[in-house]
Computed example of a mutant assay.
Amino acid sequence: MTARSTIELKALEIDTDIGTYGPGDTVPEAHILDLTLEIAPEQVMIAEDGMAHVFDYDPLIAEIDRLAADGHYHTQERLMTRIAAACAAHDAVHAVEIALAKRPVKRGSGTLGVRLCLGPDDLAALRSEKPPVRKGD
């Protein structure tokens, strides 16, 4: 079996404004992000302790936080697309799985989300594209 390693972020409640709701619609109380990044096993199985030997995910989390708060989104998919581009900006990321969900859906219950899985070829394509324009630009 070939070694694989991932960094997993689960159930992060992000501060964002997504959707357009009318009278009587259920407005989500929370948007939840799950993110799995595939990285080189050499960045997990390290010979000595130190940040120089691992993938530093803190800048990526800060960028996701910035993107989430970047203004109103009509869809979860647009924010997810921007998160995918932020992940692709890191060459150390070989594959990514992003799940973004909102809750509640109806009558105070349910979770509704979108999932996107990108492999090495997908990330390479994103890396070769012009960076997406920021909403505030």
Rank of each mutant, 00 (worst) to 15 (best):
L116D: 11
Q76Y: 01
G108S: 06
T75Q: 04
A84Q: 09
C87P: 12
D91A: 15
R107F: 08
A88L: 09
A69R: 15
V114D: 01
T111M: 06
A95R: 11
A92H: 06
A69V: 00
L118I: 08
L100Y: 13
S109D: 01
M80A: 15
G113Y: 07
G113C: 07
L67T: 01
R78S: 07
T81D: 13
L100N: 12
T75Y: 08
A89Q: 07
C117T: 15
V114W: 09
P104F: 08
H74M: 04
L67R: 14
Q76N: 04
R78W: 01
A69L: 03
A84Y: 08
V93Q: 07
G71K: 01
H94I: 13
R103T: 13
K106Q: 12
P104Y: 06
T111A: 08
L116H: 02
G108Q: 07
L118G: 06
S109C: 05
L67M: 03
H94T: 14
D65C: 06
C87H: 03
L100W: 12
A68G: 03
G108M: 06
T111R: 14
D65F: 00
G71S: 07
R107T: 06
R107E: 14
L67G: 03
A99G: 14
G113Q: 11
R103I: 01
S109A: 12
T81V: 05
R78I: 04
R66G: 03
E97L: 14
A69P: 00
G108H: 09
D65H: 05
R107Q: 10
K106S: 11
H90F: 14
M80Y: 06
R82Y: 11
L112T: 05
V93D: 06
S109F: 04
A86T: 09
A69Y: 01
R78G: 01
G71C: 05
A84N: 11
K102Y: 06
S109Q: 08
A89F: 10
R107W: 05
C117P: 00
H72P: 02
